[in-house]
């Protein structure tokens, strides 16, 4: 564990120049490097919901996993501001078991993230047992508490997981993550697999839990409209890099990065007066291989691209009190 240096007391978790590379081949085959996360520095404040938005393959999940220590970083560090004694995770960090409890995750697919042949009680008590909590009374009290929190009836505890519906399973998955009183929760596309009629319930539930317990949430999603509803702040990720971040309202009302702008334009909007709400999208399909580029990963699709964009990745610049963008236009 290295020294953390100065850290803003309002920040719960932050990354500095975080890189996660996946290397394939290299002995006989050609070495292929996938830069899933490529120099990301973000800060998540205590008690807020930050949405991480990006298309599939942009590295959102890898970033989320790295932030809670499930994925070893290649370079850079993660600073977790634990009760005013920061914990630093670097590529050399080996033991993070002591903070594991405080950093939890909810997965995308409620059908495969919980063993269907487990009873609800076992699914919920397992994480507590693994954390060496043996007090039976405490376990029972905790299970009751988290079930209440996620709005599942208590008499479900003797049911098997396969007897639950998709929405109930996702609630259970949230309950399980909460049972260890985490400070930070990574919710990885928690509503993507659910039906339209259930999405609202789960989104509301996460918002309610955030308000009630003050837990900090990183909400990973590819749906901007969901991000708008759930988050205080939004970070937009594109090919392993954060291209824009800031207050949710500001980013959506006044997007700065060309990618964010295109993304917003591409969303169909319900407008009872007109059918044509999608404007002509003037970006090309991406052809570049991110592992080989020096500059901005969006340059080959960007309508404003210049030679500079090809040569150098722009630093993330602060545009107003809480709005940052990484683009040479600004």
């Amino acid at each position: 564990m290295s020294h953390a240096g100065y850290i803003d007391p309002n920040v719960l978790i932050q990354t500095e120049g975080l890189k996660v590379y996946f290397v394939r081949g290299g002995f006989l085959a050609e070495k292929q490097i996938t830069k899933a996360v490529d120099g990301v520095s973000i800060k998540i404040n205590k008690g807020e919901v930050m949405a991480l938005v990006g298309e599939s393959g942009s590295g959102k999940t890898t970033l989320g996993r790295a932030m809670i220590g499930l994925q070893k970083p290649t370079e850079g560090k993660i600073i977790y501001n634990r009760d005013s004694s920061p914990v630093v995770i670097t590529p050399k960090t080996k033991i993070i078991k002591h903070i594991r409890r405080e950093l939890q995750m909810v997965y995308q697919d409620p059908y495969s993230s919980i063993d269907p042949y487990m009873k609800v009680y076992d699914a919920l008590s397992m994480p507590l047992k693994y954390s060496k909590i043996k007090d039976k009374e405490y376990i029972n009290k905790k299970i009751e508490e988290v079930l209440n929190m996620v709005g599942l009836p208590l008499d479900l505890i003797n049911n098997y997981v396969f007897q639950l519906s998709g929405g109930q399973r996702q609630r259970l998955s949230i309950a399980r993550a909460l049972s260890l009183d985490p400070k930070f929760l990574v919710a990885d596309e928690p509503v993507t697999m659910l039906d339209a009629s259930l999405k609202g319930e789960i989104v509301d539930l996460l918002k309610k839990i955030n308000k009630q317990t003050g837990i900090t949430i990183l909400f990973i999603t590819h749906e901007l409209p969901i991000a708008k509803i759930v988050a205080n702040r939004i970070s937009v990720m594109y090919k392993g890099k954060i291209v824009e971040s800031g207050r949710a309202q500001t980013v959506l009302k006044d997007p700065l990065h060309p990618y964010t702008k295109v993304l917003l334009e591409a969303y169909p909007k319900i407008n009872p007066e007109s059918k044509d709400t999608i404007k002509t999208i003037n970006v090309k399909e991406s052809k570049i291989d991110t592992s080989k580029i020096q500059g901005c990963p969006f340059y080959d699709r960007c309508p404003f691209a210049t030679q500079k964009c090809l040569e150098k990745m722009p630093d993330i610049k602060s545009m107003s009190s809480d709005h940052e963008v990484a683009c040479w236009l600004y």
Partner: peptide, 21 residues
């Protein structure tokens, strides 16, 4: 009506679920 409310739209500030199955 409920289905319309459950759709996340970029111009909307809320989504609601449809209770039941």
């Amino acid at each position: 009506q409920l289905l319309m409310d459950s759709i996340a739209d970029i111009n909307k500030d809320y989504i609601k679920g449809i209770p039941g199955f």
